[in-house]
Design a protein around this nucleic acid. Structure first.
Lengths: 164, 164
DNA sequence: CGTATAATGTTGAACCTTCAACTAATTATC
DNA sequence: GATAATTAGTTGAAGGTTCAACATTATACG
C-alpha cells in the first residue's frame, strides 16, 4: 500500500498523547473524590447538580441527558438507581404525554450539598490553581472549539459515510 | 452551614463545562470511528498501536497498562479478548517469571493498519485542523500541566485524607 | 380525520470495567 | 537461606453502559 496517510509528527504526537492522557485520567480523579465524599459517580453528580439549578428542581429526561452529555438510555438507567436511592423522583410531564420529568428530592439536595464542596475544591485545584485563571480560560476556549468540531458531525469521513 | 466554599463564578463555570464536554465527547467520537473502521474501541486501538511501536512488537502487560492509562485488570480482560480474536498473543517473560509479555500478531498489524488512516484523519480534523498547529500545541501544553497536577496525588484533599 | 412519521422513554441482553480475592514469583530482611 | 513483604498478573462477580427492540404519545400531511 502506498502510504499517503499524513501521520502525526513527533510534536503532534506529544500533543495528542497529552490530550488523551487528560481525557482518560480527569474522569477517574473526579469519580474518586465524588465516590469518597458522596457515594456517587461524576455522571450522577452532574445529573443532581443540573437538577438543582433548574426551575423547581425539575427537568425533562431528554434535556437532562443533553446537559450531562449522556445517552437517554444511560440516563434512564441512572435515574432508576437514583430514584431507588431516594435522591430524585420521576413523574409524567403534564403537557407532553411522552415526556418524563425528574425532580431532585430533599434528600437529593442534601447528598449534593455534602459532595459539592470537595468537588469544587478538586476542580479548583486541578484546573484553576494548576493553570491560573488566564490559562484556564484559554483551555476552556480551546476545548470549546474542539467540541464544536466534534458536534459538527463527528468528522469529515463520518459525514461522507452518513450521506451514502 | 456557613457557606465559605469558593464556588465557581460564571466564567469559571463556562470553562469547566467546556472541559467536561470535551472529556465526555471526545472518547465517544474516537470510539465511533474506530468501531466503524476497525471493529475496536479506542482503548483497544491504544493497546495495538502501543505494541506496534515496541521492540519486536512486544511489551510487558504492566508497561502496556501504564502506556494506555488503564488498570492492569482492565488490560488483562481486554488482552484476553484480543488474544481470542487473534490480534495479540501472550507468553511468560523469560527473565521475570511474574511478568507476561504481549506481542502483536501479523493479523493484529493488519487490523491496526486498516483502522489507522481513518483514526489519524479524525484526530487531524478534530484537533489540528480545528485549532491550527499553534493552538493545538497550546492545548497539549495546558493538558500536560493539568495531568501533572492530577498525577501529583489526586488533589490536596485526597492527600490529606490519605495521610490520616 | 386518519394514517405515517417522528419524538420520548424504558427495558433486557450483551458487553465492558471495576473491585476484591487469589496465585505465583521476586526482592528485602533478619 | 528462610520468611516476610512486594510486585505481576488473572479471575469471577458486581455494577455500569450500550445497543436494539419496544411502547407510547405527538406531529405532519394527504
Amino acid at each position: 500500500m502506498s502510504d499517503d496517510t499524513p501521520w502525526l509528527n513527533e510534536s503532534e504526537m506529544e500533543t495528542w498523547l497529552a490530550l488523551i492522557g487528560l481525557v482518560s485520567k480527569l474522569p477517574i480523579a473526579l469519580d474518586e473524590q465524588l465516590r469518597r465524599d458522596g457515594e456517587m459517580s461524576h455522571f450522577e453528580y452532574g445529573v443532581l447538580a443540573s437538577l438543582e439549578l433548574a426551575e423547581d428542581h425539575t427537568r425533562r429526561m431528554s434535556d437532562l441527558a443533553a446537559l450531562v452529555n449522556g445517552s437517554l438510555s444511560r440516563l434512564s438507567h441512572v435515574a432508576r438507581r437514583l430514584e431507588e436511592a431516594g435522591l430524585i423522583e420521576r413523574f409524567p410531564c403534564p403537557t407532553d404525554g411522552r415526556a418524563t420529568l425528574a425532580r431532585l428530592t430533599d434528600e437529593g439536595v442534601h447528598r449534593l450539598t455534602k459532595a459539592a464542596p470537595g468537588h469544587v475544591a478538586l476542580v479548583r485545584e486541578l484546573i484553576f490553581e494548576a493553570l491560573g485563571e488566564e490559562d484556564a480560560h484559554r483551555l476552556g476556549r480551546l476545548s470549546r472549539r474542539v467540541l464544536e468540531r466534534i458536534e459538527d458531525g463527528g468528522g469529515e469521513s463520518a459525514r461522507i459515510f452518513r450521506r451514502l
